[in-house]
Design a protein around this nucleic acid. Structure first.
Length: 464
RNA sequence: GGGGGAAUGGGCUAACUUGGUAUGCUGUCAGCUUUGGGAGCUGAUGAUCUGAGUUCAAAUCUCAGUUCCCCCA
């Protein structure tokens, strides 16, 4: 049991990462925690899901090298401007080499060799890898590190409109991913000053953390022809011309895991949606000497019945049953099955889900529908808790004073003049995050909260 | 970008002010006993972040580095 109020979020988060064995922060290089077996298994489950969604949409998985030639890296001007301060640099005997902070500049010189004609489009690849950014600010495990585990997708399209259409599809793929994590989020179009370096526009997924700060958990960028021009990447178009294609890139990092842990967890530890828990059922046997064999045989029988529906673990450690309950709650396992002589005699199961909803079930009653219903009940409760928290974190600001001690997101008009945003940023440490992607083509009107001139409705918050 | 605090077995901690055998809890391992929401007894295991300096002597004082945490911009 973590036993720390989630309102003390920093403390709670560090504690849960350590106790639940997600990461070990003792690795002696700044911003580079070690993923422990339990944490990495969970991380991998998340990324397996994301990869599957991308593969199902005909993205092909690849792996590009870590190092980028300096001259390649320098080709797109805004891109260098955005990243040059925070890249790690290494070298061989001949030249300077850049450790990828993201892979556009590694990939696009090669994509140029692979993609020659509109008939190959849309061209879609993705890779799961680590990228590196030399963060000088304070780092936090899973939230801001210098080694970022992520999946990045890159696509090529003939026209700006084709790319824009696929951009929407990419947003939908990411929505499906985050929805499967049962977390709440908002999809925002970032203001120009907060775009990806080299992008025409950037759409980002923002989640609200328990301390009221905003965590960007995914981004989808329309790069237009910025990179294809920089890399002299031309294709044969459908009307038989040579032209620069339009490109997208989008990514999701281990921050998705940070969001899952933070949004769902409680003072007992992790709460994992049934789809992502490695173990679905853990059996806790109550072994009294005289009934030991009886209970163990019954446990085996139950294991065989349940393992059709998901992974089953029998906890045979020499610990008291109470401690085992606390342990598996900490780990976020969806269902705990306690089996002692009472269950053997009544041919029953007592099951508690992670939110301690209790079931008493006859062995004969166990079937696919029942288990599916139990999973759905737990998942829906996890989801509805997340939704409830999220909606309590969104409000409207009527006047600038409403930004004082803002927790979560606030809707307020903005004239899109950076001076007005800067005023709020300096006075209240609140930034504009973007406007609702649902209104991409026709932004909702709202007068600027600072200067009262014509503007649009934007979301504001304090970012990580 | 600026400031503050911390670092002692795997985890938490005592000793630091006033330099002299490093304390306790927890964990781990072994044995016995036990198991319906954090069991007990016995024994074992294991630590002063790194480097330099002061000193007869450094966990303790000084300086530098590394890492972590917090606050401000």
């Amino acid at each position: 049991m973590v036993n720390i109020d989630k309102k003390d979020f920093s403390k709670w988060f560090n504690e849960v990462l350590e106790l639940a064995e997600i990461v070990d922060i003792r690795y002696p290089v700044k911003g580079m925690p070690v993923y422990m077996p339990y944490g990495f298994a969970l991380l991998k489950k998340l990324f397996d899901k994301l990869e599957k969604l991308l593969n199902d949409n005909k993205h092909h998985q690849v792996l590009f090298p870590l190092l980028i030639g300096d001259e390649e890296f320098k080709k797109e001007e805004q891109h260098i401007h955005g990243f040059s301060q925070e890249v790690f640099i290494t070298a061989d005997n001949e030249r300077k080499l850049i450790i990828r902070p993201t892979s556009e500049t590694a990939m696009y010189p090669i994509l140029k060799l692979w993609v020659k004609s509109h008939s190959q489009l849309p061209f879609k690849i993705h890779q799961t890898c680590c990228v590196y950014r030399n963060e000088t600010k304070s780092t936090r495990p899973l939230i801001r590190g210098r080694e970022v585990y992520w999946n990045e997708a890159h696509t090529v399209h003939e026209t700006f409109e084709d790319a824009k259409l696929h951009h929407k599809i990419a947003v939908d793929i990411y929505k499906r991913f985050f929805d499967s994590l049962l977390i709440s989020y908002i999809v925002l179009v970032r203001p120009d000053h907060d775009k990806f370096p080299g992008a025409v526009y950037t759409v980002a997924f923002d989640a609200v953390m328990p301390d009221g700060k905003i965590l960007q958990i995914g981004t989808v960028h329309h790069l237009g022809q910025n990179f294809s021009k920089a890399y002299d990447f031309k294709i044969l178009t459908s009307d038989n011309r040579m032209d620069y294609p339009h490109q997208l890139c989008y990514g999701i990092s281990m921050r998705a895991l940070a969001a899952l842990i933070s949004i769902h967890g409680d003072e007992k530890g992790l709460i994992i949606p049934t789809e992502f828990s490695d173990t679905l059922f853990v059996i806790i046997p109550i072994l009294k000497n005289e009934t030991k064999e009886l209970v163990m045989n019954y446990c085996e029988k139950v294991r065989k019945l349940l393992e059709v529906y998901g992974k089953v673990e029998i906890d045979l450690r020499e610990k008291s049953s109470g401690e085992k309950h606390y342990y598996w709650e900490l780990k976020g396992v969806p269902f705990r099955v306690e089996i002692g002589k009472n269950e053997v005699e009544s041919n029953k199961l007592v099951v508690k889900d992670r939110l301690n909803h209790k079931y008493s079930i006859l062995l004969d009653e166990i079937n696919y529908e029942l288990i599916a219903k139990m999973k759905e009940t737990l998942d829906q409760k996890i989801k509805s808790n997340a939704v409830k928290n999220f909606s309590s974190m969104i409000k409207s600001a009527k006047k600038v004073e409403d930004f004082e001690d803002l927790s979560g997101l606030a809707k307020a008009g903005w004239c899109e003049n950076e001076k007005c945003e800067q005023f709020i940023r300096e006075k209240y440490h609140v930034e504009v995050r973007g406007y609702d992607f649902n209104y991409f083509e026709n932004k909702k009107l709202a007068n600027c909260i600072v200067c009262n001139s014509k503007g649009y409705e934007y979301y504001w918050g304090k970012p990580y």
